[in-house]
Design a protein around this nucleic acid. Sequence first.
RNA 1: CGGGACGUGGCGCAGCUCGGUAGCGCACCUGCUUUGGGAGCAGGGGGUCGGGAGUUCAAAUCUCCCCGUCCCGACCA
Length: 569
Amino acid sequence: MRWSRLFVPTLRDAPGDAEFASHKLLVRGGFIRQLQSGHYSMLPLGFRVHEKVTQVIRDEINAIGGQEMSLPIMHPASLWQASGRWDSVGDELFRLTDRKGADQALAMTHEEAFTSVFAEVSSYKQLPMIWYHFKTKLRDELRPKAGLLRVREFVMKDSYSFDVDETGLDVQFQAHHQAYSTIFSRLGLDALPVQASSGSMGGSDSIEFVVPAVAGEDDIAICRSCDYAANIERATSQIAAVDDGAGAAETTRFPTPGVRTIAALEEVDGGAPADRQIKTLVMNLDGELTLVLVRGDHNLVEQKLIDHTGAVVAEPAEADAIRAALGASPGSLGAVGVSGLRIIADPALQGRVNMTTGANEDDWHLSGVDVDRDIAVDEWVDVRGVEAGEGCPNCGQPLELVRAIEVGHIFKLGRKYTEGFGITVLDQNGKAVVPIMGSYGIGVGRAMAAVVEVHHDDNGIVWPTVIAPFEAVITVVKVKDEPSMQLAEQLYAELQAAGIDVVLDDRDARAGVKFTDAELCGIPFRLTIGPKGLESGQLEFVTRTTGDKQDVAIADAAALIIDSVEGSR
RNA sequence: CGGGACGUGGCGCAGCUCGGUAGCGCACCUGCUUUGGGAGCAGGGGGUCGGGAGUUCAAAUCUCCCCGUCCCGACCA
């Protein structure tokens, strides 16, 4: 490829609305352009990287027996109705109506579609199956952000495994686990496998691969002493018991004028420290008001609540609804004596006495609350967010919280879809069994962005060779100098013949411009050809990762590049 | 959905307070000089000032509505 013919619109300044390194650099380097919020065009360089990331993933999924195919993006509503997700996924699913009036869905994942194809498989002898495709997904995200990191339209590799039994599923799950580790490592990502919530997909074992980075959107609890790592949506911890003293015989109402917050209740006469208060949250779970109780200094993790209840929508209840149900406004709420509402409480409250909470009357609170005695808890459920420094659930050592980008997710789907679609295969005994599924995804564009987040410097992107838009660039300092161009053409041909993905920078521009662009775009190796080098017989060879410059004899240049590229693939 | 900010040539910005018919840097085109780290000089092209309505003799500027984009929050009782 000749740079003079390439469309690489590099920019000196990043767009003003770009915040994160990957966003800025991918735009500045001419890799991507935004069409609208959450939708990006892949320009030639971006597309090259995207294709290379795709190929790495393809290699590794093929290596574990994956069969690549390609399923549609537009699905009939009936398919999603059959799985129940037409109603359960909410507004994230793009829906449209065709001219015949038929409802259609734009796929956000392909569980249903793959399962429908699987209906033709009828014998255990054909199992296991690992099927996958690279396909554009559409999701009406609440808030697209950070360039390629969170978008509404993106290509995902999603694979699905089908097995006769759990043991088989375990094998596929482990195979994917291993394949993902290899993929991310080849991409230059230190991806950490962490326990995760399986969200609306349903399923049991769920592991996310995350890359620690400031641009991330996930909080991960990590133990440095053992191998515990979990998404905050799933993480648990050991916490010290709180000394409540002796329990009171009965609750006491006391006035708390103007007190609306946990902090204020700590200060007021008759108040209590946060860890001896009960925080009463009124949540609207698919229209049903539910009281969720956590310790005053704890935070609710909505995902935990959703995972437990299966609710589609979980949001704080409206103030009006709260007042109608409990007779008071937020700030004075409590669960003591409440009946007729579902009450979910965090285990950190179990057995606690002498607690303080709202009295369900504005400006009044209760003290001396004995949780087991005074509150009709329906379910004890861990809904609390862990905090940094709390004890690891495995070894008790302090947990650390880190921001991370989720780059991959594997989980055991179970039989939700096969069962829902009435799919069975015959086992060895001729008996019909419902196959069990696994589901495994990697977002290609997000992986790209994650690589940039981790691999860049002041001069631009530093791509790992395997996914760099080009493996090497031959920079011709003075294009009009005949001997320079002649040598460049010769080396260019030689490298291409050797299978090197090389670009010849033959633009009639100043050397500095070409050097800067090569660095911004992150091309791993650069050979500079100019009159100076021709005269001395030594060409300059630069390695992007280290910035190291070395002189190489003209005759040795090709071999050096080939070795360097091959050694870093 | 709530809160905040922003919207002026491809990119980055000024102009808006105090209305008078649009400017700077980069990029682009032509010429000359230059040429090993984002060249210099000269000339040139390109803008419905996000859109609509209103106020006014006159609107990028003031008012209202809408749209778009970015950030924060999505819960702290």
